[in-house]
């Protein structure tokens, strides 16, 4: 996993960040009018600017996402019936088509943006702590924390397996032999994961775990957290108002 570059958002309680992200995403997902999405697009942008979010890391994501949307638009627009809205060259864009695409593009970008700004720079471990303080069942939190812990280990293991294969003259092409080699790498990775899982279960037993998990952390909720939650709520309210009134 990429190592996290800290932004100024660490001053917020992780619970506040999760609630902001969840609230914004839920409200955005429910919106049916393009204007209603605009506040959801602006809010994470403003928060990101205030807290110096490294927007540059989102550029690749933005290209990919909007590339998909362009493909969707090209394959969809000719088939939507309705009154004409504009015509671009030989293509006539109907107004239901334009509405559909407008909502899709705005919503897609807003959703990804709020998830990225509020959550992507958070240390993954804090995500687990916050969820357990938000009364998510501890078994699930332990599962999440273990996945976070072992992704790095398995990435390394996978890199080692691939290196060993390359050292023995494997070079990826598209043929049956390559496929075989990939399959062996996948099999080896899963085998090691399963082996490791047994030993991790042993390690848990050695530390007095027999079925229930205890939450470890206490977190500190501050006024600033309430302020940001309040702001997020107001944004959500504005969105609903816009959605209803238009």
């Amino acid at each position: 996993m990429k190592s996290v570059s800290h932004d100024a958002l660490v001053v917020l309680d992780p619970r506040a960040r999760i609630l902001c992200a969840a609230g914004c995403c839920m409200a955005t997902a429910l919106a049916t009018q393009p204007v209603a999405v605009i506040p959801a697009l602006c809010f994470p942008l403003i928060v990101g600017v205030i807290f110096r979010f490294p927007f540059r890391r989102l550029s690749w994501m933005a290209v990919r996402l909007n590339g998909i949307f362009i493909l969707m638009a090209l394959t969809t627009l000719p088939f939507v019936d309705g009154p004409a809205w504009r015509s671009v060259g030989p293509l006539t864009i109907t107004s239901p088509g334009a509405h559909l695409m407008g909502v899709m593009i705005l919503k897609g970008n807003a959703l990804v943006l709020s998830c990225a700004v509020f959550l992507s720079t958070m240390e993954s471990a804090s995500l687990g702590h916050a969820l357990s303080r938000l009364r998510v069942p501890t078994a699930f939190v332990q599962l999440l924390m273990s996945v976070i812990r072992y992704i790095d280990v398995l990435l390394e293991e996978h890199a080692r397996i691939r290196l060993a294969m390359r050292a023995r003259g494997f070079c990826p092409q598209f043929n049956v032999l390559t496929l075989r080699t990939h399959a062996v790498a996948v099999g080896a990775l899963f085998l090691r994961s399963l082996d490791r899982a047994e030993q991790v279960a042993d390690a848990m037993k050695c530390r007095g775990h027999h079925g229930t998990y205890a939450a470890t952390r206490t977190l500190h909720w501050r006024t600033a957290d309430s302020v940001w939650i309040g702001t997020a709520l107001s944004v959500i309210m504005v969105m609903f108002w816009l959605g209803w009134s238009v």
């Binding site: 332990q142 599962l143 273990s146 996945v147 992704i151 994961s193 899982a197 047994e198």
Partner: peptide, 9 residues
């Protein structure tokens, strides 16, 4: 849980 976690990873 460890088995599910490791396979998820």
């Amino acid at each position: 849980i460890p088995r599910v976690a490791l396979l998820s990873a």
